[in-house]
Design a protein around this nucleic acid. Structure first.
Lengths: 338, 338
DNA sequence: CTCCCATTCTGAAAACGTTATCATCGGCGG
DNA sequence: CCGCCGATGATAACGTTTTCAGAATGGGAG
């Protein structure tokens, strides 16, 4: 049935079978110029019979228009990344674009270069970089000039249009909330960041400073919940820690488990607030208080920015949405205030 | 700095600047034929100066070789999907292929057709379909003949090479384990499946039947943990339910929350076993007993199968790995046996 | 009724940027 | 001196869209 051995049918084969010229087939396909109903029917019939499918490479070559956008990310499984990607894909698909994904595993220059080269070895209309962390930032810098590029991230900068999530305000709101509950201070367990300015850490510091509270050292956890779990076990022994803000929900979950195993109650002994609005957070026990961010929307906005760049050559410099504090069960007043 | 307005430099510009012929530039680029060191240097210098980047469309057009593989999936954020995708991407990238992702949102034929058409509007070397559910299965059927296709899924079938995860054995092991603990029966909360043969449900039924236990009705939850949560609340009132196997870990988490809110203890009153090995499962309280599956490996194996198809035209029909039961805290003996 | 122009559809030919094929040229070993 | 080999350039593909020119057709004016 399938003759996979023979060459795929081309527009010439269709034209021959339909008894029309090659451009006429093209016109039927693109609809750019009207074609008589009779010929249209013949062409359509020939297309069906042959199972013809236009060759995108040839089409891209002559039109110069590319319908593929590349997404560069360090990981596609973590909640924020995966959801942003989904948002980009959705918006792109609706606009008739296809999404190509290339993972940048480390920030090591050679690896980044190799990945970028691979991604750009294919003709792309533009690039969206998920710049949440060092590999993302590194990739952004290795991209050649003259290519439409948009970054999606928690922070702005670099002269490239950015779709951002205003996590600074979210972190401030969460810290203020904990302080308002009566906690003397709030500790912060950090995720990796893309540069000097980390929105979450900034917001947290700012809220503490504004409240006249000394800023405790940041606890670095990387991306691994496992690491947060260990930090949780460590924190359990310290009675000066009554509230912890975590860089993301996965970390918060790991941390809570560590506290739990070490015999500390959440929120009884220690309040924990996460970040991102992971869908599992509300089913956790205790349900996780978190700063919810709309990653899918971030993805859609990233693509919208890129679309502007592709269409008019100009686009807004940034597009930002606020994060939203969702109070559930994992946070409450400190033990002293009970 | 960036002259995005002017046309991108072509191989002709490079040849002119370097004072060599066009094919020589091509030869330097591809390394197919030796070029004298002197000319090579001149070409490389010209490439750098112009910021030249080969046009992949033209290259693909003339070589006929495609370096893009399309992945069709109904969702890219759920744990199993995202991890499989990551595995495919990794293997593809290492082999010099790029991964294009297209989401098939529903199984509605027109939507599926539109998505497939979009994905194939670009010339691709082959396709990997994530056939875990109805949209995936629908996409598989809409693919044209003569295109290298591989399916990644929980079950086999359809004459297309499949990389599978043997969840039947996993479900049997989990069910046997619960029965061995003294439970009279095991209930099953199902995820959507790609066809009549659902490995997990089959394994569960088989284990029950073999033990001479009547098979209780399947509880359908779809993909939403929210729905599992409601099922959990409903199940809480029934004292004939002491053990529940869930189609995935997210469902198990939702279910456990429902049980918890309704005042039932896990595993004291009811044992819960999940499926997939979600990384958060071990941090859950109680830590989730689950049937772990290596999705990243499934992705890598899918690509390997496709690679075989592309290289030799032939490939293994299936590639399968077993799932593994990981016992943690959410399962234990029934209340009667305590 | 005839003529001419505008309109609509059609086909020939060029173009897109690259690699593949073939012939040519030079130098070297036998 | 002949033949061969390695490097090079001219030219032909690849499959599509985009001119551009031509052939019908229709309508209005004389």
């Amino acid at each position: 049935m399938a003759r996979s051995s023979t060459r795929a049918p081309s527009i010439t084969d269709v034209a021959r079978l339909a008894g029309v010229s090659v451009p006429t087939v093209s016109r039927v396909l693109t609809g750019s110029v009207p074609v008589s109903p009779e010929r249209t029917d013949r062409v359509m019939a020939a297309i069906r019979e042959l199972g013809y499918r236009p060759n995108g490479a040839a089409r891209a070559l002559v039109t110069g228009r590319q319908s593929v956008i590349a997404v560069l990310a360090s990981n596609t499984t973590r909640y924020g990344y995966a959801t942003t990607l989904q948002g980009i894909e959705e918006a792109a698909r609706l606009a008739g674009f296809i999404v190509m994904i290339t993972v940048i595993e480390t920030e090591e220059p050679r690896a980044v270069q190799a990945a970028v080269d691979l991604a750009l070895s294919h003709p792309v209309a533009g690039v969206v970089v998920l710049k949440f962390d060092p590999p993302g930032a590194a990739a952004l810098h290795q991209l050649p000039d003259g290519l439409p590029v948009v970054a999606a991230s928690g922070g702005r900068g670099d002269g490239v249009p950015h779709a951002v999530l205003d996590d600074t305000a979210g972190a401030m709101a969460a810290t203020d909330y904990l302080l308002g509950l009566g906690h003397r201070t709030v500790h912060y367990v950090a995720v990796p960041t893309s540069g000097r300015r980390a929105g979450r850490a900034t917001g947290w510091k700012r809220a503490l400073t504004r409240a006249g509270v000394e800023v405790p050292p940041v606890l670095d956890a990387g991306w691994e919940p496992e690491r947060a779990y260990e930090i949780g076990r460590g924190l359990a022994g310290r009675d000066d820690v009554t509230a912890v803000l975590c860089g993301n929900d996965e970390l918060a979950m790991g941390l809570m488990r560590g506290l739990h195993e070490a015999g500390r109650a959440v929120p009884g002994d220690i309040s924990v607030v996460g970040f991102d609005g992971h869908p599992m957070g509300r089913f956790w026990t205790p349900a996780l208080t978190t700063v919810e961010q709309d990653f899918a929307d971030l993805g859609r906005r990233s693509f919208a920015l890129l679309g502007g760049l592709l269409g008019t050559g100009q686009t807004a410099k940034t597009s930002s949405t606020a994060a939203r504090l969702v109070i559930r069960e994992s946070s409450g007043p400190p033990p002293s205030a009970r």
